[in-house]
Design a protein around this nucleic acid. Structure first.
Lengths: 231, 231
DNA sequence: GGGTTAAAGTGATCTGACCAAAATCTGGGT
DNA sequence: ACCCAGATTTTGGTCAGATCACTTTAACCC
């Protein structure tokens, strides 16, 4: 096998294994040249190929960045769906049921110890946080994104990134606030959500994929029930 | 514009203008390096790109060769058509009506003086040839191919190459022989065909596109009438 | 702070060289 | 006329480095 092909495959594998996440910068060319013991010519050819494949984007003077697999699909405006309707919110939750379930299950199998530690840290931070609605929503988002990243699946990470960015309002808007006004959750709902997060957390820490998946899906089903109750 | 892109475009343009015909070898890399004043690395990158585009094929140790645009389409077996049926022969002639008409008209407009001289030479050779059926068929083929090549259209040349190779029998088999036996043409048919070739030749030499196209199509229509008379 | 500019960092392009691998040519032998 | 081995040609792959163009950063001044 070629040196160029070897480099291409190695980098592609690293990307698919989420060693570098979509949006992140790859190591510089000098760094990669050293890592692969290759000349600039070979490296450039490999990078050109990966760029042609759509896996990365190279920005002159800045660096090489991992592409999000589905960015193009999320680029255009959404047709036929009202932006913040309850129908959209329920659709989004339906999707999360699959996506987050997959993410957390894969995370149990493939997360590194470092990643579990990061999730552990983030969970504890989130559990004791007493900020406003936006801050709590962002902490929740971070928790879920860390789990997605730990799944080591480029597809799951790409989807999660775009999904949470695109539907942040649909996901958190109606749970943490109503009609633009900033509200704290009712004690009951807040306690339930905390308990659900804890269940996910516990299952993750012992790498119990089935339990974690069930907990994540229970968490989302609960959110759906809250939404439906308000509809 | 890049040097690489410049070289790519230049070579592609040369190919599309039929400066090098499908199947022909491009000048060697050293030659091209001199022509474009570029390094081998650049040239190689341009060649790699053109190969990825499917325009050329590079063979290690041998050279770069222009691809035939439609080779892939002619690769598989023909389905649903009997190999040497009269129906096929008539279909082929129907196709030639378009293809050769286009070829000869373009040739009138775009042939170089050298190419006209080559056609002139070949025509005179063919006109006085008194060989067997196969030899006369080959001379006829050469005459038509020279015209196609003079059209300076990569599409016409690609089609003609594959078409005449694939359907040589369908085109010449029944005109120059019957049921495998080697026959000379009847005096009447032979005289008619010679007259038709002469009409094409005359129109070409004065670059009269309309007349040449009409003559070519009349030639093919006559062949079709002979075929139908025998059916 | 805010904006401007200079410097450092990084990718883009191009070069000339070297050796390897495959094909082609050449000459000798049968 | 045919075949074979070796020499030559031609493309494939790789390298180190020079130079240019663009971004980012940081220092600076206001």
């Amino acid at each position: 096998m070629n040196k160029v092909e070897m480099i291409s495959h190695a980098i592609e594998e690293d990307i698919r294994q989420c060693r570098w996440l979509p949006g992140n910068k790859l190591p510089g060319q000098l760094n990669l040249m050293a890592r692969f013991g290759a000349s600039r010519t070979c490296l450039r050819e490999a990078i050109t190929g990966l760029e042609a494949k759509g896996l990365i984007t190279s920005r002159h003077g800045s660096g090489c960045y991992v592409n999000n697999l589905f960015e193009a699909q999320f680029a255009g405006p959404m047709l036929g769906v009202e932006r913040d309707s309850v129908a959209l919110q329920l659709s989004v939750m339906e999707m999360r049921l699959v996506l987050d379930g997959e993410a957390v299950q894969n995370a149990c199998e493939r997360a590194t110890d470092d990643q579990l530690a990061a999730i552990d840290y983030e969970y504890k931070l989130m559990a004791q946080r007493r900020g406003n609605a936006l801050q709590r929503a962002k902490a929740d988002l971070k928790f879920h994104m860390l789990i997605a990243e730990s799944s080591h699946s480029l597809i799951v990470v790409s989807m999660s990134q775009l999904f949470y960015a695109q539907f942040f309002n649909a996901i958190y808007g109606s749970l943490y606030s109503v009609a633009g006004r900033d509200l704290t959750l009712s004690g009951e709902v807040s306690l339930a959500i905390n308990a659900q997060h804890h269940a996910i957390y516990e299952a993750l820490m012992v790498r119990d994929g089935e339990a974690a998946k069930a907990a994540a899906q229970a968490h989302i089903r609960y959110s759906m029930s809250v939404l439906e109750g308000r509809a």
